[in-house]
């Protein structure tokens, strides 16, 4: 069976909520039913077939072609299967995701992986702010799964993150790991200012010394050989990412903080 493909007909003037277009939601639907689904666009709604050319039938493997940054909530609540997007996507990519794979060839908007529980998101470009974060007013960010960003992430990556892993091959913006409760964020490039601000627990793993230094709210715990690092780096080997080819290391400088709070988080900088 060929992949169920949605090709955007025209660049929309308003944002489209794509949350109904997931393997789970389309599993038992006929082609006619899928075509007749209503998607919220701006303050109205429109049939799927009025917005997209539809081809293919394998709803476990969905492709969105000709995508733009106006397509929000792609992969919302998905638990299995795969969605691949050619182009950019909008906000809330993989929102509440519980399993399966999401891959985007372009950039994603704000709140990528927001409150996701499991599965894998790969963005072959840059992401907006609040990757893996919690919705405004909520206190639990992502609780599992993996987000891979081949480009740069925006500000406040991992805000309120509780578990899971965010791997950034490029640079991370300001306030990376802010209010983080647990989990791991690894960055191969540079990081912005206010690293780990209000971080409670969790690990920020950096392969480069932060150019803007470590905040005064983090105390230097010295250089150490940590046994878990080779184990974690080995787990990256199966990923389609630069992290897979990262040479194993276990020597790091360890900083503990944010000491303005409980101070159980850590920034590990490769030595």
């Amino acid at each position: 069976m060929s992949a169920l493909t949605f090709t955007l007909k025209n660049a929309p003037a308003q944002r489209i909520d794509c949350s109904p277009l997931t393997p789970d939601a389309l599993a038992d639907k006929s082609a006619a039913e899928i075509a007749a689904l209503e998607l919220v666009i701006g303050n109205s709604s429109a049939r799927v077939d009025s917005l997209f050319e539809i081809s293919g039938e394998d709803s476990t493997n969905i492709q969105i072609e000709n995508s733009t940054d106006k397509l929000d909530f792609v992969g919302h609540n998905m638990t299995s299967g795969r969605i691949s997007v050619a182009g950019n996507v909008g906000a809330y990519l993989g929102h509440f995701m519980e399993g399966g794979e999401l891959e985007v060839t372009g950039n994603s908007g704000i709140y990528t992986g927001c409150e996701m529980k499991d599965g894998q998101i790969k963005v072959n470009g840059n992401t907006g702010d609040f990757v893996g974060g919690a919705r405004p007013g909520y206190k639990n960010g992502m609780t599992g799964g993996t987000v891979i960003i081949t480009g740069n992430s925006g500000d406040r990556t991992g805000d309120h993150m509780r578990r899971g892993m965010i791997l950034i091959e490029g640079n991370a913006g300001n306030y990376c790991g802010t209010r983080m409760v647990s989990g791991t964020i690894a960055v191969l490039g540079s990081v912005g200012s206010h690293l780990g601000y209000a971080m409670k627990r969790g690990t920020l793993l950096l392969t480069q010394q932060p150019t803007q230094g470590i905040s005064a709210n983090f105390n230097d715990c010295g250089s150490h050989t940590l046994a878990f690092l080779p184990l974690m780096l080995a787990s990256f080997k199966k990923l389609d990412s630069k992290f897979a080819s990262l040479e194993s290391f276990s020597r790091v400088q360890r900083y503990a903080g944010d000491l303005g709070g409980i101070g159980m988080g850590e920034i590990l900088v490769k030595l």
């Binding site: 899971g164 690990t203 940590l226 878990f228 974690m232 787990s235 850590e266």
Partner: peptide, 12 residues
Amino acid sequence: ISKMIDGKRYWR
């Protein structure tokens, strides 16, 4: 410190 690696939990 807890770390989940490949679906298994480890304690540091």
